[in-house]
């Protein structure tokens, strides 16, 4: 059974149709790259997958149940904004928050956060405040928070958009590790090189419609 299945999905915002995807399936453990120019509907699609936006028409199922019901969507997925939101507080507070939100105790959350920070090259950042992070560092912190949460469905909106080459490598490595561990990853990106390096199936979007679909 597909993890996500779309049936006649359409999304309208402010009276204009921004997304129309009659049919799409995303398999468990798949890495899917949403490619396309700005305004092609990549972020809207990710937000629908994260249940942050409800389709205007059609339905999306998750694990065979309507999205938002069934197999504990909120305990499995995590969505990263293109410009991630880092909460007021230190880096360790933010990363541990991901693990604590999933019910982990303080010690286990701290261990998991430390491992995630190591993976993202954030050693020595634990006490750094949220205001003192560059765009690339903020993206790494947000990804570390997502990984520390233990989610196995990662919805990533332009995860390397603000990253320099060093941050980009660390982010790519962390996503690859999650994919190798069996996580389902859907990422919106302009970075075709990243999509290729992750071995992602490409889905081209243009003006809210599927323009190009790579065979599985």
């Amino acid at each position: 059974m597909a993890l996500y299945a779309f049936d006649g999905l359409s999304l309208s915002l402010g009276g204009a149709e921004v997304l129309s995807i009659p049919e799409l399936e995303i398999e468990e453990g798949e890495v899917l790259a949403l490619l396309g120019p700005n305004g092609s509907g990549k972020t809207s699609l990710l937000k629908i997958l994260a249940a942050l936006l409800a389709p205007s028409e059609g339905r999306v199922s998750f694990c065979g149940s309507p999205l938002g019901q069934g197999c504990a969507l909120a305990r499995r997925i995590v969505y990263l904004h293109q410009q991630p939101y880092i909460m007021a507080g230190s880096v360790s507070y933010n990363v541990e928050f991901g693990a604590r939100s999933r019910g982990l105790g303080a010690r286990e959350a701290a261990e998991r956060a430390e491992a995630a920070m190591r993976l993202l090259g954030l050693e020595g950042f634990a006490r750094r405040g949220h205001r003192a992070l560059s765009g690339g560092e903020a993206q790494r912190v947000a990804l570390a928070r997502a990984i520390a949460s233990g989610s196995d469905v990662l919805l990533l909106d332009e995860p390397t958009a603000s990253a320099d080459s060093a941050s980009r490598e660390l982010i790519a490595r962390a996503i690859r590790r999650k994919a190798e561990a069996g996580a389902t990853i859907v990422l919106a990106t302009h970075d075709e090189e990243l999509a290729g390096a992750l071995g992602a199936r490409a889905l081209g979007l243009a003006r809210g419609r599927i323009a190009e679909k790579e065979a599985r």
Binding site: L52, A74, V78, Y79, H81, Y85, M87, F97, S101, S149
Partner: peptide
């Protein structure tokens, strides 16, 4: 508050009290 804050809390699965 920035709407991304609420969305971040929701998708991290934080409970009501958290």
């Amino acid at each position: 508050l920035d709407p991304r804050f609420r969305e971040t809390l929701l998708t991290l699965g934080a409970g009501r009290w958290r």
